[in-house]
Write a protein that binds this DNA or RNA. Structure first.
Lengths: 355, 355
DNA sequence: ATGAAAGCGCTAACAC
DNA sequence: GTGTTAGCGCTTTCAT
């Protein structure tokens, strides 16, 4: 008769137990799929009915405190308002939800201080695992987590230490597809707007560019590094590139946002794409098919990245295996109208023929 | 000497207390900003130093179980991969993070079953409040939460009951801006691709269209309702609209995605925008300035929506006031190149004058 | 100003 | 198969 007065909003196992005339641990066993088989069918039914009637919902905080498993996972990404991430997040959330997990999603804006803060909040909430899209090439966060044996999966970017599995796209192949396509169109003087080199994506795509150019016996020195994967950085880098290398007939940008910036820069210089300069992007972001002109780019399996990352993380959490399997997904060339044969003037001077 | 053997990974208040030679409740008081003032400065310093040294981090699950406050809030939106939401989510997360809260973000794809499931997961985790962008005009979720007195804020869409505060944009004004602009350009036969009418946004924008047309003494019967706020639905609706009303010279779409679909439909019909038909969108989604042609649209303060929603929710949570203040934000017309004077042929027949 | 004690709601040995 | 018991780590009266 002690706690019956406090019929507050929360229905607990004890309330259900009283209603079903069983011990509260029996209720717990019924509610937990893992221990459900221990209970007689008739008793289980009675408990379930009472729970239903009282509107019982298990308190994940209490359960988590006891089991040391919160069924919450953390997701840290640099920019949620970049077109790259939403489809990935969507897929992650779908897989997690199917498995009774939820995601705490945080942005860092590539700011290490913010990253540290959100990570602290996540750890305080006893997250069971972490998916991060912010790994730098030698990432202290990655190292820290991996050393503590905490389940961690990197997406999109990877660090160099191999301390945790990652889901990435084969950017070497991706830039190869781009360069092959441009060369096939007849381009020889091809420039590259590179992404930040401390990010694996930026570095890998630059390397892919260089290797592919070398494969074709072409010079790969027309490279400008954009300080960030943004439209504005792309615009500035494009101007710099064209100032230094006015003769290039095609520009391979390290991602779509950079390519958008290049579109602006070209327009500002009175250059037409693809007549004067062919452009390519990377990621096949939503809407780039509607740009002027529609952007030739490389499609990466965003959804698949999310699915694989979530699956891999859940495997690590539930099985506690230290599998360091990396997943490398293949990109696909999407040809649109921002690429064409090199401009006539250059064709003339470079190959001394017309038509 | 009982529990000293289990030097497991987690450092607790007891560990810190032992190291600082105080009672563990003192540690708790030091760590909690609210009770910190009760402790002598020197003792506090000693505790803090010990905590630092041992790497103590408070366990939010345990604290939440005790205080019945999880410092987690739920965010439910229909589509994370719609360009509307990421900036809102970014702002929400920023405000929450500043206040020591984190967000569990879930997508529903407008599927009520999914909504129910994610909501159950959130409730199990004892979320302190909820921000939802999925409210239908008579929403059971909204009603349920409001009745239980749980802090809830609606964004973007609102229900009709006024059961909870909402942060919305003044869509009547927004469509008014659009219609005024088109009329000023000389359009009279203006069509409208409406959004789903069970959503407050769809309904409000249609009403805004009708009222504005009436204000100008124009017929507002060229309306087709798209079954969803998607590009494909926009494409189909645009075809239907033009089949039924071939003479319209301008189309006001209820959002940008619908306008994109219209772009496709116009292209399929061999019509040029804005020469044959002027187009307008709504939301000023990222990239619509780079479309062919750049889209005239209405900019809504996405970031502000997120900020206001998070602030309002935190107010409700911390002060437990039942303020039902609605926030209505003002939209802004963004004129680009998808709108122009009506096509010559129509000008001729409609107003019997040229130039 | 600090210590003592109780308990948030749950799970998981351990009994019987 | 079900009841008993003991915490998970924390906050918060109540003493002192």
């Amino acid at each position: 008769m002690k706690r019956s007065k406090r019929r507050s909003q929360h229905v607990t196992v004890r309330d259900v137990a009283r209603a079903a005339r069983v011990h509260f641990s029996t209720v717990s066993r019924v509610m937990n799929p893992h221990t459900r088989s221990q209970i007689t069918e008739s008793v289980a039914k009675r408990v379930l009915k009472a729970a239903e009637r009282l509107g019982y919902r298990t308190n994940a905080l209490a359960a988590g405190l006891r089991t040391r498993r919160s069924r919450v996972i953390g997701v840290i990404i640099p920019y949620i308002d970049s077109p790259l991430y939403p489809p990935i997040l969507l897929a992650i959330e779908e897989i997690l939800s199917e498995n009774g997990y939820v995601a705490i999603i945080s942005n860092t804006q590539n700011d290490p201080a913010r990253e540290e803060r959100v990570l602290a909040e996540m750890m305080a909430r006893q997250i069971d695992g972490l998916i991060i899209g912010t790994a730098t090439r030698h990432d202290p966060v990655v190292k820290g987590w991996a050393q503590r044996g905490a389940p961690l999966v990197m997406i999109n970017r990877t660090d160099q230490t191999g301390a945790a599995p990652s889901i990435i796209v084969d950017d070497l192949v991706g830039l190869g597809l781009i360069v092959d396509h441009l060369v096939e169109l007849g381009h020889k003087a091809i420039g590259h707007i590179a992404g930040p080199q401390q990010l694996s994506t930026g570095a890998a795509r630059s390397e892919g560019f260089r290797k592919a150019m070398a494969r074709h016996g072409l010079q790969a020195d027309a490279i400008t590094i954009a300080e960030d994967f943004t439209r504005e950085a792309g615009r500035r880098a494009c101007h710099a590139l064209l100032n230094q290398f006015p003769d290039i007939t095609a520009i391979a940008a390290a991602n779509d946002l950079l390519a958008l910036g290049c579109y602006e820069a070209l327009q500002e210089r009175g250059l037409s794409c693809p007549k004067d300069v062919s452009m390519t992007g990377y990621n096949d972001s939503v809407f780039v098919d509607l740009l002027r002109p529609p952007l030739t780019t490389v499609r990466i399996p965003q959804r698949e990245i999310g699915i694989q990352a979530a699956r891999l993380l859940l495997e690590k959490i539930e099985e506690r295996r230290a599998l360091a399997r990396d997943v490398v997904l293949r990109p696909q060339l999407i040809i649109r109208q921002s690429t064409a044969t090199p401009r006539a003037s250059v064709l003339l001077s470079n190959s001394s023929q017309r038509f």
